[in-house]
């Protein structure tokens, strides 16, 4: 902590920072909530086109990424138990696994997106405008925006977990003060939660 002699000394309150994180998560839920409203309206208006366009997506990669996120969610959840038992080594390992899985998720996403780009599927592409119906264009517009926004959150999550690991190394996080670890965990579960809905809504329209 940098010097805070000009600030008020507030006692450490783990519950306050936890509620703070939850409130932030609420804003994220409504941010994506807005997107889900857009999605559901257009899906309702263009059921066949969404069906058709959904076939283009690779269910296998989507499923792999789902498994990755679920496992990483478990490892970061376990790390809060580990820190409570004051097992720093295990906490570190679990956070490391979470971090690696997050990077793997992004790699998969990268390959998935580049495959789409090479087929001429990207927002504003001439090929899409020429061959696709309006509903399909909307589907892919939403697909890129929503999974893109989700990937952005993965990046933020990676930054948060890295920060947590640094503070863990500096012994600023320990079994009596681990609110940052807990909050990174909560954030990471949020990323997972959103994917739990994105996966069936985009990849499982058959």
């Amino acid at each position: 902590m940098e010097s805070t002699h000009h600030a008020h000394h507030l006692p450490y309150d783990a519950e306050a920072s936890k509620i703070g994180m939850w409130l932030f998560i609420f804003t994220e839920l409504l941010l994506f909530g807005g997107m889900f409203i857009v999605y559901s309206v257009y899906r309702y208006l263009n059921p066949e086109a969404f069906h058709l366009a959904g076939e283009e997506l690779n269910t296998f990669i989507g499923a792999v990424n789902t498994v990755i996120l679920l496992v990483s969610s478990m490892t970061i959840a376990m790390s809060t138990s580990a820190i409570q038992k004051n097992d720093i080594r295990l906490t570190n390992i679990l956070l490391g696994i979470t971090l690696i899985l997050a990077v793997v998720f992004l790699f998969n996403k990268y390959f998935e997106w580049s495959a789409k780009f090479s087929h001429g599927i990207y927002p504003g592409s001439q090929e899409m405008l020429g061959t696709m119906s309006q509903g399909e264009i909307l589907f892919f517009g939403l697909y890129f925006v929503m999974t893109g926004l989700h990937a952005l959150h993965i990046l933020v999550g990676i930054a948060l977990i890295t920060w947590t690991m640094i503070e863990l190394k500096q012994k600023k996080i320990h079994h009596e003060k681990y609110d940052l670890l807990e909050n990174s965990g909560l954030y990471w579960h949020l990323v997972d939660l959103i994917w739990i809905f994105l996966f069936p809504l985009f990849y499982l329209i058959h």
Partner: peptide, 24 residues
């Protein structure tokens, strides 16, 4: 800051992950 927290046993998380994977 001294409130005691419930420590969740590791196996609970494993079971939940199993359930999540099955549901997926």
């Amino acid at each position: 800051s001294n409130e005691k927290h419930h420590i969740v046993p590791y196996h609970v998380y494993v079971v939940i992950l199993g359930a999540l994977l099955i549901l997926t």
